[in-house]
Write a protein that binds this DNA or RNA. Structure first.
Length: 511
RNA sequence: GGGCCGUUAGCUCAGCUGGUAGAGCAGCGGACUUUUAAUCCGUCGGUCCCAGGUUCGAGUCCUGGACGGCCCA
């Protein structure tokens, strides 16, 4: 009587008894209180005070624990706000109702309770039930009460179970929601306008990445799931949306890892009459306020280490950061194509044919510097060669007015003064198109409509993208991006019939 | 794509050098009117991820595969 099918059969039997009494899936119970709010409002009221002025409540939620002690029982009830205990007494409900509860109700069932607040002998705030309703009978048993669900695969595949039994998971996702809400408020307060631009694009632009392809039947044309919204948001700046942002999904057809999911959430915002330095200031302010709001402190604990967001972030040029970590190199070694190639090869980098000194500087940076940048650091002056949408530095066109923000060794944000010189932009697109023709399938396409938009004139503008998932990982102390994406991508499960161990769908059609 | 690790009851986990597969929780039966990992007595429950192989004998050893985790590209 304890393999999965038997456990389910046992509950089906209980459900059948409910159906016979005509009360299997009622939808007329209305609650007027939430567990967490009751804890907050009455948590400090003592037993006598609760007795003197009784508080009647109707709560509903899932049974997480059931402790039967003869003619009295205790339930632990969980709703979206938290948990509260329920006291169930035979003498209050009558013998028939109490027996039905005792024999027919299980951990995992969803119930409604009407009663009064009391404090038990051991001091716990409790709803003493006067009426009990079983609202939804659960067929499947919940995981073990103490350890919860540990198996990573099952936690991701059956997130609904993970959320029921692992409170820290629920907390992380609520934090994610608060992060996004805070960012919206932050930008709204500063006059930014939120928009939505195409997810399906005829030309995938705005980043270097492999896209997903789909097909529009009526138009008989391929469309690409966007890898970035950038080129559309800049069209809007041309159109007069001088402060604009979008928080939404990007799709990149690349590998999965603890830092990559094929679909991920990005904030992009564009700010006319500002430059990349203004962006860095704004980013610091945003992240500082965010930590304060979400964590109550500007110190973030991540994977055992503390990070201080309260102080100004370090700012360092990419070349200087590379030279710091590679003491054998001099500035001149990384500007000349042949010398840069030799330097990279000496550092163990397999230099590909099309790479110029700018790409090599970036590779050296990623290989030798990136993961060492623990404290929040703005790395500035990315080479023009690897920044096809960024404005060149006024004093040195080899570099751009661009930065990336690194925290805990990971890229969190990428921003730059936008390239609004349509002639330069057209030339950069042609350069990308040449690289693509030469076999670089991550290189950008030439986007003629975007050039046309720029030719109408885009004001001097700064724009930035912030990876929301990685930011939330940092703020929730999550080691994997899958811990902050509700339903991360997984390989399909094997069919239950195929003999695989995991058979989440195994009960389907059993009746 | 490569390397390492994992997969045993619904869940969390033991299982030594190859010799009859275990515990706790959950379930079921019983006791119990203030417990909170309730307690106590009794009890059911296994395609040891899959397929081959070695062996008198495989959860355990070998080969291949599936899925997952970590690291690398």
């Amino acid at each position: 009587m304890a393999d999965e099918q038997t456990l389910i059969e046992e509950r089906r039997r209980k459900l059948a008894a409910l159906r016979e009494r005509g009360e299997a899936f009622p939808n007329d119970f209305r609650r007027d209180a939430l567990a967490g709010e009751l804890q907050a409002a009455y948590g400090d009221r003592d037993a006598q005070a609760l007795e003197r002025s009784p508080v009647r409540v109707r709560v509903a939620g899932r049974i997480l624990a059931k402790r039967v002690m003869g003619r009295v029982s205790f339930l632990q009830l969980q709703d979206m706000s938290g948990r509260i205990q329920v006291l169930v007494q035979r003498d209050a409900l009558g013998d028939e109702a109490y027996q039905a509860f005792k024999k027919g109700w299980d951990v995992g069932d969803i119930v409604g309770v009407e009663g009064v607040l009391i404090r038990t002998r051991t001091g716990e705030l409790t709803v003493r039930a006067e009426r009990l309703r079983l609202l939804t009978k659960a067929l499947r048993p919940l995981p073990e009460k103490w350890h919860g669900l540990q198996d990573q695969e099952q936690r991701y595949r059956m997130r609904y179970v993970d959320l029921i039994v692992n409170p820290e998971v629920r907390r992380a996702f609520l934090t994610r929601t608060r992060v996004i809400a805070h960012i919206r408020r932050f930008l709204d307060e500063r006059g930014f306008v939120e928009v939505e631009t195409p997810m399906m694009q005829p030309i995938p632009g705005g980043a270097t990445a492999r896209p997903f392809v789909t097909h529009h039947n009526a138009l008989d044309m391929d469309l690409y799931l966007r890898i970035a919204p950038e080129l559309y948001l800049k069209r809007l700046v041309v159109g007069g949306f001088e402060k604009v942002y979008e928080i939404n999904r990007n799709f990149r057809n690349e590998g999965l890892s603890s830092r990559h999911n094929p679909e991920f959430t990005m904030l992009e915002f564009y700010w006319a009459y500002a430059d990349y330095r203004d962006l860095m200031d704004l980013t610091e302010e945003m992240l500082r306020g965010l930590a304060q709001e979400v964590l109550g402190s500007t110190v973030v604990r991540y994977q055992g280490r503390g990070y201080e967001l309260g102080r100004p972030f370090r700012r360092v040029r990419l070349l200087d950061a590379v030279l710091e970590r590679n003491p054998g190199l001099g500035a001149g070694d990384l500007r000349d194509p042949a010398r840069a190639r030799r330097a990279a090869e000496a550092a163990g980098i397999a230099v590909e044919p099309g790479w110029g000194p700018g790409k090599i500087q970036l590779e050296l940076f990623e290989k030798t510097v990136e993961e060492t940048l623990l404290e929040p650091t703005f790395v500035t002056h990315f080479p023009t060669e690897v920044s096809p949408l960024a404005r060149r530095c006024a004093d040195d066109p080899f570099y751009t007015d661009r930065f990336e923000l690194f925290v805990a060794g990971r890229e969190i944000a990428n921003g730059f003064s936008e390239l609004n010189d349509y002639e330069d932009q057209a030339e950069r697109f042609r350069e990308q198109a040449r690289a693509r023709a030469a076999g670089d399938d991550e290189a950008m396409y030439y986007d003629a409509d975007f050039i046309r938009a720029l030719e109408y004139g885009m004001p001097p503008t700064a724009g930035e993208g912030i990876g929301i998932d990685r930011l939330v990982m940092f703020l929730t102390d999550s080691p994997s991006i899958r811990d902050v994406i509700l339903f991360p991508h997984m390989r399909p499960e094997r069919e239950a019939a195929g003999g695989g161990r995991r058979s989440a769908g195994g009960g389907d059609g059993a009746d």
